[in-house]
């Protein structure tokens, strides 16, 4: 690092055609190798060892954090969880262990003054939004899908006017926003159901489609 500094050639490596052009130009902010002397050298060594110890600890806890997730029944070690969350979350199970084997459609209808409106397929909007669009908005592509799967992962409520889980409240809010976007009048309650369209396995006909109710939820004013 040392002797190459201080010459005037730093800015114009493109002109020095005869030199080794794959040699890295000097980094003016790198350590110069100035001798530190006893105490300062001890500080430098201590800092280096501390940084390396913390980095290795992080790596070890990262492995402990993702490791148990690979076998479904093991819980995450609390220490790894406390270290990595919330700033270093890990979630790498896209299309794994298996990709979904069915397309799902969220269908909703609003109720006003105890009379039902028409059923609307909200997923259809998302599907249309990213058809042929190489850079779709997250609002059109991810929000509804993730809201449905977060709700399904929790405990689904199906009773009218029961206290809703946060996931259900969120899904309801997403649905209300979508209905508003579609120009529907604001309903008193929304009724949600999930249509499942299984994909035909290779060489077999597709299993029959099915529907399941997700709930009827009050819309707050």
């Amino acid at each position: 690092m040392n002797g190459t500094d201080g010459t005037d050639g730093r800015g114009d490596t493109e002109r020095t055609d005869g030199a080794d052009l794959t040699a890295e130009p000097p980094d003016p902010l790198a350590p110069r190798g100035t001798p530190l002397g006893g105490p300062l050298r001890a500080v430098a060594r201590g800092a280096a060892l501390l940084v390396m110890a913390v980095a290795l600890t992080h790596m070890a806890l990262l492995l402990l954090y993702v490791g148990p997730a690979l076998s479904p029944d093991t819980a995450r070690p609390a220490r790894a969880d406390a270290w990595l969350r919330p700033l270093f979350p890990q979630d790498w199970n896209i299309f794994a262990p298996d990709p979904p084997r069915a397309n799902t459609r969220l269908e909703v209808r609003g109720w006003r003054a105890d009379r039902p409106g028409r059923w609307i397929d909200l997923t259809a909007h998302d599907v249309a939004a990213h058809r042929g669009n190489p850079l779709p908005s997250r609002e059109d592509q991810t929000v509804l899908r993730k809201a449905v799967s977060a709700h399904l992962a929790g405990s689904p409520h199906t009773q009218l006017r029961a206290p809703l889980t946060p996931a259900a409240q969120y899904l309801r809010n997403v649905v209300v926003v979508r209905l508003d976007d579609l120009g529907e009048p604001r309903p008193d309650t929304v009724e949600l159901r999930l249509r499942t369209l299984p994909i035909a396995p290779p060489g077999h006909p597709a299993p029959a489609a099915s529907r399941r109710p997700l709930g009827t939820w009050e819309v707050l004013p």
């Binding site: 997730a69 790498w92 199970n93 794994a96 262990p97 298996d98 997923t123 599907v127 058809r131």
Partner: peptide
């Protein structure tokens, strides 16, 4: 991790995973 998750899945083992993944409406630009 992504690979180890997949090894647990039957469709990645029998090779049919992409058969399903490419037919998902949520993940189809074309």
């Amino acid at each position: 991790t992504a690979a180890l998750y997949k090894i647990r899945g039957a469709t990645w083992r029998d090779g049919s995973a992409l058969h399903y993944a490419l037919r998902l409406d949520d993940f189809a630009t074309f």
